[in-house]
């Protein structure tokens, strides 16, 4: 284990470090490109697409893709392209919020359990086991019913509050192996407090793990929200991608062969998931150098 010296850090610019991280890591590069493409689609859409076409009866009904409506229209007269432009950032926002909440809670509890151990460890393990055995879809339905505000961000936060267990478990396991290392004993011997040890000594060693868990939490959050929406549960006035699919399904678009109607949001969702998945695999390689061996 080579200790970090103070010489190497300031000499490398952020751009160079990013380039080093990405070069040779095809998975990470492709994942980030896909995510950038999704974001670019949204930004360009907000700039150039007439979003009024997402209103009911603003376009002809059930048109397959054409020059005028690139992704076709649905049975209530909305342009699918406009729906995608509006829905994509909302779905991403749910995922981001779920990811941020999940990772923050998970990291905090994981560190606490792994470092303090004893009663804290047992207590956190019981809570995470309980949340693990109850079907989370069920919890979400009823918790979201309490807050019928219909806001997208509440959905994200609630999902995040219920999806920290994986992160906590990973962080705890890492902390358990790290806490016996020499540099931690060194810090303890020189009088550093618990919080200082956690944030200054342990946290930097876990950055790439946390980054990978964060990306996984984002995609898990999106998956839950889309699952709820496809079932017709959750805030129904939010025009997320999941709700586009619910509308399509409700109008029998699949069985009647209106492939563009359900297909467009599905393709967008798959691109988002693929981007997130490749990014997390790429980050995994950064965290676990042994995986780089044969490829």
């Amino acid at each position: 284990m080579v200790e970090r010296t103070s010489i190497e850090v300031p000499s490398v610019s952020l751009a160079t470090r990013f380039f080093r991280l990405v070069s040779g890591n095809v998975l990470l590069l492709m994942g980030l490109i896909l995510l950038a493409a999704v974001i670019a689609f949204t930004v360009l859409g907000y700039l150039f697409v007439d979003l009024e076409l997402a209103r009911l009866n603003s376009a002809p009904l059930r048109q397959p893709p054409s020059m005028e409506h690139w992704f076709g229209t649905d049975a209530v007269g909305r342009s699918i392209l406009a729906l995608l432009v509006i829905g994509t950032p909302k779905t991403l926002l749910i995922g981001l919020l779920a990811g941020i909440c999940g990772i923050t809670i998970g990291t905090f509890l994981g560190f606490f359990a792994g470092y303090v151990r004893g009663w804290a460890d047992t207590f956190i393990r019981i809570i995470s086991d309980v949340l693990f055995v109850i079907p989370i879809l069920f919890l979400l339905v009823f918790i979201i019913e309490y807050f019928p505000v219909g806001a997208v961000w509440i959905m994200g936060v609630v999902i995040g509050l219920l999806s920290w267990m994986g992160t906590a478990r990973t962080v705890r396991a890492q902390v358990l192996t790290l806490r016996e290392r020499a540099f931690i004993n060194m810090a303890r011997a020189s009088g550093a407090g618990t919080w200082r040890i956690i944030f200054v000594e342990l946290m930097p060693n876990l950055t790439s793990y946390l980054a990978a868990s964060f990306v996984q939490a984002v995609s898990g959050g999106i998956l839950f929200s889309i699952g709820l929406e496809v079932l017709g549960l959750g805030p129904s006035n939010s025009q997320t991608l999941g709700w586009s699919i619910w509308w399509a399904n409700d109008y029998g678009a699949v069985l009647r062969g209106y492939w563009w109607w359900w297909g467009s949001p599905v393709v967008m969702i798959v691109i988002i998931f693929l981007g997130l998945f490749l990014t997390s695999l790429g980050l995994d390689r950064v965290a676990n150098p042994r995986l780089r061996a044969s490829s």
Partner: peptide, 20 residues
């Protein structure tokens, strides 16, 4: 990797469209 990225219930919708 692409197939694994598709949520299974959306893959179900695709399969219905294709095979039924």
């Amino acid at each position: 990797m692409i197939v694994h990225s598709i949520p299974y219930f959306l893959l179900g919708i695709m399969l219905i469209a294709l095979f039924t």
